[in-house]
Amino acid sequence: MSWKQAFSSSVGKKIQMSLTGIFLILFLIVHCYINAQIWFGEDAFLTAAHFMGTNVVIRTIEIGLFAFLILHIVQGLSLWAKNSKRRNTRYAVKAGSQTSPWYRRSMGLLGTLILLFLIIHLSKFWGPNRFAQTFGSGELNLYELMKEEFQNVVIVVIYLLGCFALAWHLVHGVYSSMQTLGLTTHRYKTMIKNVGVAFSIIVTVIFALMPISFYMHWVN
């Protein structure tokens, strides 16, 4: 069996989702760490942001990140589309939450919400910054930019919704990626589930606290 065949079966595609997902999870940890710098002062944050925005290694990985992100999105949407066509006649009465929690059945939807949020998010910070770096006067002061953006209550609400979608996506995503790699054995499955939930809560709470902190003027 060739690699292509191995990756193109239904399980192979799931492995792609799992591996790209795990990469994105790792990225979130880094992103979260950088964000948390806001509570340690503008300088701390800007140093970290500067490093992330200019370091050659990081910038190289960034290309990979986008590649994986796109793969995750494309593969995810395609799985969603295909899976929803496996049952042409739908059930009149559905089991709903009697047999599985809603978020596990809504990964495609949650992922799409995250994608929409991501477009807004990138167009607010990452996009303008890279544009300025490449074509303009150099790096933007992202801290100031945030301070400004997060005074708008609409933006804050959009961010909180994004965090909400991300949290539920992660609750299933962390566990699911491990399950797909076959790591959720009898011994580890409860631990993996719990770690996944804890991770989702911690990461998204940190993310959510950022716009709130600016809006509420907890940081200056």
Binding site: S10, V11, K14, N83, T99, S100, R104, R105, T180
Partner: peptide, 13 residues
């Protein structure tokens, strides 16, 4: 058949 997204309804039923 569709692909598995680790929903777990199968196990429940």
């Amino acid at each position: 058949f569709g692909s598995c997204t680790n929903i777990g309804a199968c196990e429940a039923e």
